[in-house]
Design a protein around this nucleic acid. Structure first.
Length: 421
DNA sequence: TCTGGGGTCCTAGGACCC
DNA sequence: TCTGGGGTCCTAGGACCC
């Protein structure tokens, strides 16, 4: 049996933790650049603020209902997420927790599953961290998702925790689940399935496997289908696995037209991506840079993307080596004229740093560079906020994103500690 | 007139997730 | 004026190999 533990309206819960006065007020959290709504408390959902809604379109609704609005504060959410995950690890063992996202984890509950543990997991997390969670348990990951969704949907009846054990439970749950609400069935497939009259999870489960393989993206669809029948096909992932790709991409706070500003942004994003790369002790064999520009058309929002990539002669984790390439790509991409909205840097072909293949022509020892990176990361990690950086990243950063309603980093900065009087 | 069979590797693009 | 960021997996098709 597996269990899925999912934090309720996670970002909103984090904000409320330090603002108890918001307990019964609607709360929303905005994406970077204060662009769209990415988290809503139950009250905000009831008022009718949809997920992903552009903030400017819903501003009136939000203001007239006195919704508390926050810019996203990833320092705070990341830290609270760690506390939740640590609590879970303490209860079921480190190797039985797969952190699926910042607010979700799958737990491997083993063979002798006792239904009561679902409740105690929930209680302990809430007591130790102050974050409310929902628990769904079932024989497969897809069914855990179904259970979790229903646990949330029927809060009063389930107490936010639901176990699907035998076939009767599963059938009933699937009959109540719309096909598009299944994990792995997105907008496109849901549409297609509905056209064919397959409206619920149960109806999909009743289709023959071969049909599913043909019509639902091959083996991916087949896996979901089998999971609906209680056959676990989506493996429990090793928590120590490294990323295969690392990217840093951002919208600009306002459109950018100057080459220098594009270069600053690309240098900054390269430095951030390289930092993530070093954290997993990796080195990148390829880099890609992309720019997104406004389209000429006045009445439509159709940004134009252009991208270039380069393969490095030797995989590296050094910021200054990586940015030599990313800046050259940025120069090649840039045109004067377009108003640029966004840029991004993607590192791929990642290999573990110690296994970097030697190259006959770059024999020079790079120990010094390595120490430099280590020192840089240490300073920036403990002091934060880019205390030390490369000049190419720029000092003014006119293009930086907007964050007008950001809360304090209560748990990760001494200076921003909450004050209680 | 008639032109094999069995592979691998790479890339682009689609679909999905939170 | 204003629409996020960071990932994963899979497939099809082309180039190339013997």
């Amino acid at each position: 049996m597996y269990a899925l533990v999912d934090c309720n309206s996670f970002y909103c819960s984090c904000e409320r933790l330090f603002r108890p006065d918001l307990e019964s007020r609607p709360v929303v959290v905005l994406s970077n650049n204060d662009g769209c709504v990415i988290a809503r408390s139950d009250e905000a959902k009831q008022i009718g603020v949809p997920m992903g809604a552009p903030f400017f379109q819903y501003r009136d609704l939000i203001e007239s209902n006195q919704v508390a609005v926050f810019s996203s504060n990833y320092n705070l959410y990341g830290d609270l997420s760690m506390r939740v995950m640590d609590t879970l690890r303490g209860m079921v063992g480190e190797s039985n927790v797969e952190v699926y996202s910042v607010d979700e984890a799958f737990l491997d509950m083993g063979q002798n599953f006792d239904g009561k543990i679902a409740g105690s997991l929930k209680e302990r997390v809430e007591q130790w961290t102050g974050i409310k969670v929902s628990v769904g348990a079932a024989p497969t990951k897809v069914l855990c998702k179904v259970a979790n969704r229903l646990a949330k949907k029927h809060k009063e009846a389930t107490g936010c925790s639901l176990v699907l054990r035998d076939e009767a439970d599963i059938r009933q749950a699937l009959e109540e689940t719309e096909v598009g609400d299944l994990w792995g069935i997105g907008y496109r497939y849901a549409e297609k399935l509905r056209q064919l009259g397959i409206t619920t999870g149960w109806k999909l489960a009743c289709m023959p496997g071969e049909w599913v393989r043909k019509n639902l993206g091959g083996v991916t669809g087949l896996r979901i289908h089998r999971e609906l029948h209680g056959e676990a096909c989506i493996p429990f992932k090793d928590p120590l696995e490294n990323k295969k790709m690392i990217s840093t991409t951002r919208m600009f706070g306002k459109p950018v037209t100057l080459k220098n500003e594009i270069r600053e942004a690309v240098a900054t994003y390269t430095a951030r991506a390289a930092e993530k790369l070093r954290r997993q002790q990796g080195a990148a064999g390829s880099v890609e840079v992309f720019l997104v520009a406004e389209s000429g058309g006045k009445f439509s929002y159709h940004p134009v993307k252009s991208a270039l990539s380069a393969r490095l002669p030797k995989a590296t984790m050094l910021t200054h080596e990586l940015s030599r390439y990313t800046l050259a790509l940025a120069d090649a991409l840039f045109e004067s004229g377009p108003r640029y909205l966004k840029a991004g840097v993607i590192l791929s072909d990642l290999v573990p740093d110690e296994r970097v293949q030697g190259n006959l022509f770059t024999a020079k020892s790079r120990e010094g560079d390595r120490y430099l990176m280590e020192a840089l990361d240490n300073i920036n990690f403990s002091q934060r906020d880019e205390k030390v950086k490369f000049g190419a990243s720029g000092l003014t950063k006119a293009w930086k994103m907007r964050q007008d309603c950001k809360s304090k980093r209560h748990t990760t900065r001494w200076k921003e500690l909450a004050i209680v009087r």
